Structures are given as C-alpha cells and as structure tokens.
Amino acid sequence: MDQAKQAINAVKVYKNGLSGKNVNIAILDTGVYGHELLNDKIVCFNDYVGGKTKIYDDNGHGTHVAGIICADRIGMAENARIAVFKVLDQFGMGKTGDSLRALEWIKRNHKKYDIKILNFSVGYLPDSKLTEKQKILDVIDELWNLGIVVVAAAGNYGPGPFSVTVPGISRKIITVGSYDDFRSGRGPTGCCIVKPEVLAPGSEILSLSNRNNGFVRKSGTSMATPIVAGAIALLLERYPKMKPEEVKLRLYNTCKRIPSQKDRNWGIVDVDKLLGII
C-alpha cells in the first residue's frame, strides 16, 4: 500500500493528521475476517448469503477490500469505520436479489449508522438480466441522491470499449478503473458517458488476508476502488458537509490527467490535491 499511496500522491494528507475519522463506509462484498488490524472498525455486519451473525469471509476478497480502506498502518483511512454486507459467496458469486436487499437496508439505515460512502467492488456479468441490472442502478442512484458517495469498480472485462460493468455505468456515481491492469473495464457507456471517471493503482496491491491475520496481494478494479473510497473518506473528514456531486466535481478538477486518455477518463486520483493540501 505504501507504493500505491505514493502513486496517487497521498503524502502530505497524513502529515496533516487526516485519517478518515468519523467517516463510515459501507462495503458490499464477500464479508470480512476478524483481522487484528481491523479491531473495533466494524460497526455492523449483515450476511445475505449464509444468514450468520458472526463476522466471517470465506473468500478473502472483502477482507482485502476492507484492509485497503481502513486497516491499521496500511489503510487509506485507518480511522474510518466500516459497515459490511456479505452478498457474495465463497466463490465470489452472488445473487442480484441479495445485493438489492443489502442496498435497501442501507437506504433505510444509513442515518442510524452514519454511512457516508458505499464501496461497491462488485461487478455484474455482462449477460446478467437487464431488469435485474436496472434495479441495482435505480437503488444505487437513490443512495447517491440521499447523500451517500457511491464508488464502484469498472470491472475486469476490458480493455475493449463498452466493457464497464453494472453499477459502474451509472451516470451519477464515481466509477474507478485501474491504470496498471489491462483488464480494467473501459467506456464509453451505452449513453456515451466517459467511464471510468477516475483511475487508481490496482495491480498486486498488498492488503489483509482472511487467514491467520496475514497479508496477500490481489489485482483488479476491485482493489483500485477502495483506494479511491479511502481517499474520499479523508476528504469527508476534512469537509464533512460536502455533497456527493461536490466530491465528484472535486475529483474532476484535481485528477492527474493522462494526455493519451483525455477522452476516456479524468485521470489518476491525486489525494493531496483532492484535499487542497499542496
């Protein structure tokens, strides 16, 4: 994670004492393992796959994502807290209905748990039913309208055009691609919107394992997405009244542009510049 932070210019932000304090982030994924570097960071856990009440992660993907966001010492925002929703099974597969149930729960309870950000490192397969995908998009947009900054992965079905997955194709939310993974989904979308808007490192990212308090490297837009979600947690710590559309505009104005990709994305997130620390 140190290399990833350097790549996105997350340097002065930590010297200024920012750590994501008082920012709660919802994670839809494979669950979370009780890693020692996540102690006291999990505000709630809902299991829509197995119906269990005790935290667990039988795949490891969700734990890796959680670690990128807020693990002690290595996370982007180590004092942020997380609300975890298990919607994917041990194989990383899931039912759209389970994700919808989790999203509806967030819609009903986001104020109670003070959820400011939703990290959605789940991409629905291109051959998923259109009606199911539209339901996900509708609820995602509702959450955005309620003041939750939704950050979603572009998916790993690239590099061809029109390869961004749902919900990353939403007009409203922030979609994240990986600048160092050739599989990263690329736009435009069917409505010719530039997607993903933001890029971050996503290749061989070191984070938490779901075994023995260990560590593991994983790659993909699923890893790039929590890097951006963590950066936004730092931003909302500094500017707690900032609205989702203001966060998105700030990203647009501060990303490091890539001249050869100026029509494909906004560029690479620049954390110090995002927070106005220069």
Rank of each mutant, 00 (worst) to 15 (best):
M76V: 14
G168N: 04
A71K: 01
M1F: 13
N212W: 07
N79K: 15
P188V: 05
L38A: 12
S260C: 11
A26D: 04
F162K: 14
D57H: 07
D29C: 01
V11Q: 11
G230T: 00
M76G: 03
V49Q: 09
I232T: 07
R257V: 10
A4C: 10
K54Q: 13
P201Y: 13
H61E: 05
E245I: 07
Q134T: 03
M242P: 09
A26K: 05
D72V: 01
A233T: 03
N39F: 10
G230K: 03
I68Q: 02
K243H: 09
A233W: 02
L143K: 10
V49C: 12
V269S: 04
K54L: 08
W144N: 14
I42A: 08
C191V: 03
F182P: 15
V164I: 14
T53F: 03
G94D: 12
V198F: 06
V228K: 02
E197C: 08
V84L: 07
P240V: 02
H61W: 06
F85G: 05
L130R: 13
V216S: 06
A66I: 09
D2Y: 10
E142A: 08
K21Q: 14
R108S: 14
M223Y: 09
F91G: 11
V150L: 05
A71F: 07
V269R: 00
V271H: 04
V216G: 01
K12P: 02
N9V: 12
K256R: 10
I69Y: 05
I193S: 02
A229K: 00
P259H: 13
L103H: 03
N79V: 00
D57G: 04
A200E: 06
G177P: 03
F91N: 15
K111C: 04
M1A: 13
S260K: 14
L249K: 14
A77W: 05
D270F: 07
V164A: 01
P126I: 11
L234C: 01
D58M: 02
N210Y: 11
D127M: 08
N59P: 01
G123M: 07
L236Y: 09
K15I: 02
V164R: 04
A231Q: 09
N145W: 00
R101M: 14
Y239W: 03
E104D: 13
E36S: 15
L146A: 11
G50H: 06
A224N: 02
K218E: 10
S222E: 08
P159D: 08
A224L: 05
H64N: 06
T96R: 00
Y157S: 13
D263S: 12
A224H: 00
L18S: 06
S128V: 02
L234S: 09
T165R: 13
G276C: 10
V228F: 00
V150G: 02
K15W: 03
V43Q: 07
K241P: 00
C255G: 04
D141E: 15
A7E: 15
G147H: 08
V139F: 03
A153V: 07
N16V: 08
K248W: 10
R101L: 15
I74H: 03
Y113W: 13
